[in-house]
Measured scan of single mutants.
Amino acid sequence: NITNLCPFDEVFNATRFASVYAWNRKRISNCVADYSVLYNFAPFFAFKCYGVSPTKLNDLCFTNVYADSFVIRGNEVSQIAPGQTGNIADYNYKLPDDFTGCVIAWNSNKLDSKVGGNYNYLYRLFRKSNLKPFERDISTEIYQAGNKPCNGVAGFNCYFPLRSYGFRPTYGVGHQPYRVVVLSFELLHAPATVCGPKKST
């Protein structure tokens, strides 16, 4: 009989979020998941679920829940969905086509923008091939755009693969920082350890 609540607040209220190319993952297990707390949290810009209804989450049990978190621009949030393409979905964070879970995003301009620009948040701009679902690539190898080998030196046709967002408070909404948490639900042939409040007695 599990009684402790799942530590969703640790994920959602973290002081610093990860850059999207180096997205953070927390495994959540052996706890009671009260999703209504999240669902009623006012400032969400997006709360979209795939393969599961957000209002039914509290009735369900899962083997594991993974909480992935990172920061992207407002106009990139739409790429955090199954079957998407674009710089983020291709080179930074890719969801599987059969994704079961929820994508939760909110504007973090007050936290993550600075006058003069916040350059701490990076994304991958160049990559030889697209990421596989949930693949994480933190390499900083110089990207070779031409035929000539770069030998690890940036220059003509040789690019550092990461780019900084440089968030400023005055940017338009599409270019403002958004914090994103992706909850993915794993249902294995194993005992369920993460259940909603109704199922955990």
Rank of each mutant, 00 (worst) to 15 (best):
L162F: 10
S29E: 09
Y39A: 14
N107K: 06
R163C: 09
P161Y: 01
G166T: 13
N109P: 03
S184K: 07
S108V: 04
Y119E: 15
K148H: 12
V37G: 09
R179L: 03
L111Q: 14
N147K: 13
S113V: 06
R179D: 03
F167R: 03
R136Y: 03
W106N: 04
D9K: 11
T55L: 12
L131Q: 03
F17R: 01
G152P: 08
R127I: 02
N147Q: 14
N87Y: 15
G83V: 04
S69W: 02
L188H: 13
Y178Q: 04
S200R: 11
R168P: 04
E135T: 06
L125W: 13
G155I: 05
Q79S: 05
S36W: 04
P133Y: 04
A14N: 07
L188Q: 15
A42Q: 12
V115Q: 14
N40R: 14
D68N: 01
H175C: 10
R163S: 12
R127H: 05
D59N: 11
F126V: 13
Y39I: 09
I28R: 00
R163P: 04
L188K: 15
G74D: 03
L57R: 03
F160I: 12
P149N: 12
S78C: 07
K128V: 08
G155Q: 09
A42E: 09
Q144W: 05
G83Y: 08
Y35N: 06
F70Q: 02
D90S: 09
F70L: 01
L38R: 02
N92L: 02
F12Q: 02
K198L: 12
V173F: 10
D97W: 07
P177N: 03
N75H: 11
N4R: 13
S164R: 10
R168N: 14
P96M: 00
L131G: 03
F41G: 08
S139L: 04
F99Y: 03
R136Q: 09
Y50D: 02
N107M: 03
L60W: 05
S200V: 14
K199Q: 14
V181A: 02
C150V: 06
V37S: 14
S29W: 06
I104E: 00
G152L: 08
C158T: 06
D137I: 01
C31L: 05
F41L: 13
R73A: 14
A192M: 12
Y171C: 12
V180F: 01
A42Y: 08
I28C: 04
G196E: 11
Y66K: 06
A190W: 08
P96T: 03
G51L: 01
K48S: 07
N13F: 00
E76V: 01
A81T: 04
R16C: 08
N30G: 08
I80M: 02
T193V: 09
L188P: 12
T201H: 13
D137S: 02
T201I: 13
I72G: 01
T170F: 08
S113P: 03
A192Y: 14
Y93F: 04
P161V: 03
P191S: 12
F45W: 15
Q84H: 06
V103T: 01
K48R: 14
G166A: 13
K128F: 07
V153A: 14
V37W: 12
V65D: 01
Y143P: 07
N58V: 08
Y171L: 15
N147F: 11
A145M: 12
V153E: 14
G51R: 10
C61P: 09
P161A: 07
R16V: 13
Y121P: 06
